[in-house]
């Protein structure tokens, strides 16, 4: 048995013991997201427009993460609509940013790994850099929108007659409480994986200026900033969507 299979089994067993049915769903969502991510690579390899792949696969990954993450329909629908709006807003920020930053493809530090490979593969790496930036932030957006919308669903179920303004205040206060830890999840998630690169930078005495203009570092920092922006705008947007969705729910119940 390979280590990956064994670790996967350990994770599955732990998720089933501790999470029960919810654990099974969490594991399946991981597998599905893996499948769709690999599918995205293949689609792009077959020259499907990276922009369409980003939108299509992005929406699918959001749907998988959100609808398999929680059971309550008001929570998941609100989170899903809100995260779609966030996805569109982020896309309109990311496209110009990637064109200004030009951090597509590979940096000078990658050249060892690329030896013997053909780089003239006829893919538009600039467009693909938009794809990777968007995909890397999707999890964070989904998680934040579920957290806000689940919290608000709880508030509404206990105080159904809150005004929209009060709901907005509640949403922002839930947002404040998740912000600190979410930022750190993202920071560690991104920086942890780049430990080796930082050792490289500092071992070879890169200057501050060199690091701040380095293709790989700037690309990574752009992803962190974009995720931060995504999480921050998710908070009020999820609450806004909730002020619409809650009435829809009451109509359904009547």
């Amino acid at each position: 048995m390979t280590t990956i299979t064994a670790l996967g089994l350990v994770l599955l067993i732990l998720m089933l013991i501790i999470g029960g049915k919810q654990g099974w769903k969490a594991f399946m969502s991981l597998i599905l997201n893996f499948g769709f991510l690999f599918f995205a690579v293949i689609l792009i390899a077959f020259h499907v427009s990276p922009f369409l792949v980003t939108l299509g696969i992005g929406i699918v990954i959001l749907a998988i993460t959100i609808f398999m993450g929680d059971d309550d329909l008001l929570t998941t629908q609100t989170a899903f609509y809100a995260s779609l709006i966030v996805l569109l807003i982020l896309l309109s920020i990311i496209v110009p940013i990637e064109h200004f930053a030009m951090v597509q493809g590979f940096g000078a530090e990658d050249s060892d790994a690329l030896e013997g490979m053909s780089l003239y593969i006829g893919m538009n790496f600039l467009q693909i850099s938009v794809t990777t930036t968007v995909l890397s932030t999707l999890g964070a957006i989904a998680e934040a929108s579920i957290a806000i919308s689940a919290g608000l669903t709880e508030v509404i179920s206990q105080h159904p007659h809150l005004t929209n303004r009060q709901l907005m205040a509640n949403g922002m206060s839930i947002g404040e409480s998740i912000l600190g830890t979410t930022f750190n999840t993202l920071f560690f998630g991104f920086f942890g994986g780049f430990l080796a690169l930082f050792i490289w930078f500092m071992g070879l005495n890169y200057s501050f200026g060199e690091i701040m203009n380095n293709k790989i570092f700037v690309s990574e920092l752009i992803m962190i900033f974009i995720s931060f922006i995504g999480v921050i705008i998710t908070i009020p947007l999820t609450t806004l969507v909730m002020t619409h969705q809650r009435h829809k729910k009451f109509v359904d119940n009547d």
Binding site: K25, I121, E143
Partner: peptide, 25 residues
Amino acid sequence: QSIMGPLVNVLFLIFMTDTFISTLL
């Protein structure tokens, strides 16, 4: 139980998209 699924996916997407372009290449 309700947080773990989305949270595992947050890290998964961060770790895996880093490998996206080299996989393509």
